[in-house]
Nucleic acid binder design. Structure first.
Lengths: 200, 200
DNA sequence: ATACTATGAACGAACGATCGTTCACTCTAG
DNA sequence: CTAGAGTGAACGATCGTTCGTTCATAGTAT
């Protein structure tokens, strides 16, 4: 076979296998309840070999948190469209609510937040994703203020953060209620609530 | 000394000492990072004696979650005043925001939520507190709709849950931002946001 | 082509620490 | 005398990490 890029690609594949396995474990049992052996077993590799790819357990979590950044890109793209701020906001809310309503995303976020409270390194990674979304949303709100389709927010940044809070909380609320019937009603109510809070 | 109520009272004191110690540990390092030995040491008792008062580590957390219910009582009282719903809502938001902005409350809630995701028993206790607050708030919103100071919410229950979400999220946001200057601005923006979302 | 060496992925036993829990025991108040 | 609060050693399990080893492959000198 050919050059070393074949090898490094294979290595990346292995790393991904480990990350996927770890993610599954963390979602099922939580970060602290998951042992390194659990991850290795689910990834189909040996315990020792895991340490050839990651310096330790926390590094695997950090990799997961870092990969999460890629997931936010589509939403950043969505928010970049300032031509019709009100429509863009509605579409963003709808899209992010769908994303946030997926149990796996809720559980991962919960795990990451819980770890962030006691672990600055994870907190930094987590805050990066958060800030980029809040910034993009804030800019959309400002654009909407400028062309008059939103009311004049005294603090667009805080407003953006509160809208993001509502979106993130939605998923957790649906998860802990575990009644399936509520999802669409909750999203409707959310659109309505944000609509009234932002209109002139 | 006198009757057995003296003894049971002393026992309760001990239990509280343990609960307090456990709470401190959980807040500092998280539930899973705290060992039973840490709790016993901080409570000033022996390891074995802790098991004379609690059947195990999880029971201590459950006790903390249960005690949390007492903290919500003042807010339930506050929300029971339906004479001027708009004023009551503002006062509730202000009071709960202050409560929620205290780091210890944020961290405890975070810990409890994180545990609830993987532990139905804790989830049940947590959901009890949550539901009582949401119900009281929902009733206030309905009263406000009836006498015309709020708009007609299509789903008052969802609205109440979203307002609670905003209040709970506020504390976490302030904690993770760890900039001290933002608190009053965040609360102002929150009042403004909720005000616009609920007015006619 | 053939032998030798170097590389590093892969492995699982083993390490020391710590986990939650149990237990046999002492001490003390009623 | 007795009930039970209080003690800390000890248990078996599991934790994250390290270690010595094997082995397939790549490169190189012959």
């Amino acid at each position: 076979m050919n050059a070393p890029e074949d090898k490094t690609a294979a290595l990346q594949k292995r790393k991904m296998r480990i990350v996927d396995a770890a993610l599954t474990c963390f979602l099922e049992n939580g970060y602290h309840q998951t042992g390194v052996r659990d991850i290795a077993r689910k990834a189909g590799i040996s315990l020792g070999n895991l340490y050839n790819h990651f310096p330790g357990k926390e590094a695997v979590l950090a990799e997961i948190a870092a990969l999460d950044r890629q997931e936010t890109q589509p939403f950043l793209d969505l928010l970049a469209d300032h031509s019709q701020p009100e429509k863009t906001l509605k579409r963003f809310v709808s899209a992010y609510a769908d994303y946030s309503a997926q149990p796996e995303n809720v559980v991962l976020t919960t795990e990451l937040v819980g770890e962030s409270v006691h672990n600055p390194e994870i907190a930094a990674l987590f805050s990066e994703n958060w800030t980029s979304l809040v910034d993009a949303l804030k800019n959309l709100l400002k654009a909407g203020m400028a062309d008059g389709c939103f009311r004049a927010f005294s603090d667009p940044d805080e407003t953006a953060e509160m809208i993001m809070d509502l979106l993130e909380s939605l998923g957790l609320r649906l998860l802990l209620a575990d009644g399936e019937k509520k999802k669409s009603a909750a999203i409707d109510a959310l659109q309505d609530f944000i609509g009234h809070a932002t209109r002139k």
